[in-house]
Amino acid sequence: MSPTRPSVLPAVLRLLSLLPLLLPTPPGVRGDCGPPPEVPNAQPILGGSTSFPEKTAITYKCNEGFVKIPGNPDSVVCLSNNQWSEFIEFCNRSCDVPTRLLFASLKKDYNMQNYFPVGSTVEYECRPGYIRNPFQSVKLTCLQNLTWSKAAEFCKKKSCPNPGELRNGDINITTGLFYGSPIFFSCHTGYRLVGESSSYCTLFDRTLKWSEPLPECVEIYCPEPIQIDNGYIQEEQEVYVYRQSITYGCNKGFNLVGKSSIYCTVTEDEGEWSDPPPQCIGKSSGYKPSPTAQKPTTVSVPATQRPSVPKATTSFHTTRVTERKETSPSGAVSLIYGFVAAAIIIGILILVKIFWDYGKSGSYNTYENNKAVNVMFHNLSETDDTSEVRHSDKL
């Protein structure tokens, strides 16, 4: 019987178990997790990497229209067992940032939040200058179509205090006395505005006040009236205001040319007189009204009297007077001519009557009739200086 030979099988198995340790390990095999897992509504940020050894971390970015859920991790890690760590879905749809309101602002709890899933709500508070309306909700909700519900006007504007009254002026209130509203100031005619022409209801230290104080309406004065030569101002005063008038008068021996009364008026907040002052002209000066008059006037004077006129117009007035003397008889001369003509006509009629009676009787009636005829005839032909009628002795 042959001797017992030791068994080699256990030694072979031990060598086979050590073989992986003796051979080189191919790259990308030991401790490699392979491609990152797929995450709903997100994409991994690889940066060009193809190998992911142990402890490698991969971060994800949410797809367009999705927002990261606060508190949920957005990355995975390669573990020692060549497996990726577990994850929770961290991208979801959300409404945009809440609606910005003019009269209210988001409460501080929502200022840093950017994830608003369907059904979530936000709450507002009134801005300074506004007051809460207790009958309206201050909350908005993210709807199924990812839009916010319509905001009610749950905050109303506060009002500024009454601005008061503007003496000698008006306050024009266009949109009320609420926060942000303007008011406008104007003065009555004859007054000038001193100060701002408008004011706004605004906020000062959380209190509503008017941005500008009330202006003043100051009375407008006309300049001191001009004194005129050879004349005076009746009941002269120290100051003259809108619509107040003055009346001029002339000294004895002078005529007033122009408007005797003028009044104070206003143009572009400046006082001025309605007309220029008149002039006082001597009665015998032959003065004509201002050159702007439409029809020049002339002065009637006797032929023996030379009018006294200003030097600049002496030749003009002298010519006018000379023409009047040569071409137009005076009123007295014209009257005398009329009486003479009437007397001649009456005398002719009397003579015709006498000759008619003589023809019938053949002679004069009597000496007394002849005497009467002669007296009448001589009275009509003699001048006013004749005191008696002389008769011929032959009669």
Rank of each mutant, 00 (worst) to 15 (best):
K325I: 05
K371F: 12
K360I: 07
A332G: 07
S363V: 08
I344L: 04
I336Y: 04
I336E: 04
A343S: 05
P329M: 01
N365R: 13
K371V: 12
N369G: 14
E323W: 07
T314K: 14
L335V: 06
T366I: 05
I344F: 01
G362L: 00
S334L: 10
R320P: 01
S328R: 13
V352F: 14
K353G: 15
L351Y: 08
A341P: 00
P329R: 00
V352P: 01
G362A: 01
Y364C: 10
K360R: 13
N369F: 09
R320A: 08
V333T: 05
E368P: 00
S328F: 09
A332H: 08
T318A: 06
T314D: 12
L351I: 08
V340P: 01
R324F: 04
L349Y: 15
V321S: 08
T318S: 06
F316D: 09
G338Y: 02
T322Q: 14
G338Q: 06
W356E: 12
H317I: 05
L349G: 15
G338A: 10
R320K: 10
G331S: 13
E326L: 14
S334I: 07
S334W: 03
R320M: 08
I348L: 13
S315D: 15
W356M: 14
K360C: 05
I345N: 03
N370W: 06
N370Q: 12
K371T: 10
S361I: 13
N369E: 14
T322F: 14
E326N: 09
K371A: 13
H317M: 03
K353D: 14
F355T: 07
H317S: 00
V321G: 01
Y364L: 10
G331A: 15
T314E: 12
K371Y: 11
S361Q: 15
Y367M: 09
L335C: 03
G338C: 03
Y337M: 03
I336C: 03
V352I: 14
A342Y: 02
R324S: 04
V333F: 04
L335I: 05
D357F: 10
G347L: 13
L349A: 15
N370G: 11
Y358K: 05
S330C: 06
L351T: 11
Y358C: 08
V333A: 07
Y358M: 12
F316I: 11
T318W: 01
T366M: 05
